[in-house]
């Protein structure tokens, strides 16, 4: 990574899978570590940059293209960019990865039933009632990433555990330096956990 440049953490996942929550918490953590950080949240982008775009595949792809171009400009100027949009299609995420290069894909994994239960914005309810069409996870496809850098199982992990996973990956990739709090990488922590479990200590 060019040290004058930032990097991009690209969240993807179903609506209400926890992307925005994780993005905000990750932002706080990175700011605490001295980075300039911008979150490109799907809803905000659609209101300001992509106003007028709908939810057809073409419009969704165009929305993502706009997001990755803004991310590209910010990253080039040393800003860490966190995107939190559904970004349901693999192909366009791959396009973003190729352009942005310093790209960490984080899959906010959560069963659709659980997302429906959460229904943060009440959109699942509307989609299930047929009031809105082309809603991802209901009548529009979501293509989970095949090789994301991080998978956060947001129905099983706490926000802190998920953010720690992402932070560990960023350390491993050399994007951020470990602090005093970061004793283990994710892999090391698993080794220690296993050792303690084998001894009946945890």
């Amino acid at each position: 990574m060019n040290r004058n440049e930032g990097f991009v953490v690209w969240f993807t996942g179903l609506p209400s899978s926890g992307k925005s929550t994780l993005a905000q918490r990750l932002k706080d953590e990175l700011i605490k570590r001295g980075f300039r950080v911008e979150v490109l949240d799907g809803d905000v982008v659609r209101e300001h940059i992509s106003r007028g775009l709908g939810f057809s595949k073409e419009d969704r792809d165009e929305n993502i293209r706009r997001i990755y171009h803004v991310a590209y400009l910010l990253k080039r100027n040393g800003v860490v960019v966190i995107t939190a949009a559904i970004s349901p299609y693999r192909e366009i995420r791959q396009e973003a990865r190729e352009l942005l290069k310093d790209f960490v894909e984080v899959y906010a994994s959560c069963p659709v039933e659980k997302c429906i239960e959460r229904d943060v914005k009440g959109m699942y309810k509307k989609a299930l009632a047929g009031e809105i069409k082309n809603f991802t996870g209901i009548d529009d496809p979501y293509e989970p990433p095949e090789n994301p850098e991080v998978v956060c199982e947001t129905d099983k992990e706490t926000v802190e555990e998920s953010v720690k996973k992402i932070i560990n990956k960023l350390i491993e990739r050399g994007y951020i330096e470990p602090t005093d709090e970061d004793v283990y990488t994710e892999e090391e922590e698993e080794i220690i956990k296993k050792r303690l479990e084998d001894l009946g200590y945890i």
């Binding site: 706490t158 004793v183 283990y184 945890i202």
Partner: peptide
């Protein structure tokens, strides 16, 4: 202990010398 918790947000972690 070998495992501990941060109460809010609730997180289990492995204490070290830190």
């Amino acid at each position: 202990g070998f495992i501990d918790r941060r109460p809010s947000p609730f997180t289990l972690y492995l204490p070290t010398g830190k």
